Computed example of a mutant assay.
Amino acid sequence: MKNKVILVSSDQLGKGDKELGEGVLETFFTLLKQREELPVAIFCMNSGVLTLTEKSFVSVHLKELEEKGVDVIACKTCVDYYDVENQLIAGKISGMPVFLDLAAKYEVITIS
């Protein structure tokens, strides 16, 4: 995962049952945080910003990744759309220009 950016565009991984998708996404981040090589950043957009709130079990893992030095970023437009600014427990709010800069420098892995 070194020199990679993870783009989280949904609050679940894969299509199908929402509860299953949320569980699979949590497993992904549980395993990711245990790796020696971590991504440079995680950028959350669309319903992916919901993973940064207290309502998502994923937020605990994203907070731990942030504490390990991974930049965790929430799309401002998406945070405003879902009205979750006061519910974020991980990440910092920023704009699409930050993601474009990251994408220009690093390989992007999209989680949707």
Results as ranks from 00 to 15, higher is better:
K68N: 08
L50N: 07
V98F: 13
M1W: 09
C44D: 02
V5A: 04
D71L: 15
F99K: 07
E85W: 03
M96E: 02
E19K: 15
V8Y: 05
K63E: 14
M1D: 06
I109M: 10
L52V: 00
I111L: 15
A90N: 01
L32E: 06
D80H: 07
Y106D: 03
L88C: 02
L13D: 02
V79C: 05
S10A: 14
A90T: 08
G95Y: 09
D17K: 11
V49A: 01
V84G: 04
M45Y: 11
T51Q: 01
D83N: 13
G48Q: 04
K63R: 14
V72Q: 05
L88G: 04
L102Y: 15
V70C: 06
M1R: 10
S56Y: 05
K55W: 04
S10N: 11
I42D: 01
A103S: 13
V98E: 12
K33L: 14
K76G: 13
V70W: 02
N3F: 10
Y106F: 14
K15F: 13
L100E: 06
A41E: 03
Y106L: 08
F29I: 05
E67N: 13
G69E: 11
L31Q: 14
V108Q: 00
E64Y: 04
S56N: 05
A90E: 03
K55G: 03
S112V: 08
N46T: 06
S56M: 07
G23I: 03
L38G: 06
K63W: 07
A74F: 06
A41L: 06
D83I: 12
A104G: 09
T53S: 07
Q12A: 15
G14R: 02
G23V: 01
V40T: 13
G48N: 03
F29M: 04
A90G: 01
A90L: 00
A74C: 09
L7I: 08
V60D: 08
F43N: 02
Q12G: 09
L25Y: 03
P97H: 08
A104I: 02
L88W: 00
E36I: 13
D11V: 04
K55F: 10
Y81L: 11
L32F: 09
D11H: 14
N86P: 00
V8S: 05
Q34P: 00
F28I: 07
S9I: 11
K55C: 02
V49D: 00
K18Y: 14
H61R: 04
E54T: 14
F43L: 04
Y106H: 14
V70N: 04
V49T: 02
L102K: 03
T51N: 05
V58A: 10
F28T: 02
G48D: 02
L20W: 13
I6T: 07
I73T: 08
G69L: 13
L20A: 12
T53D: 05
C78N: 07
I6M: 12
G91Q: 01
S94L: 08
G23L: 11
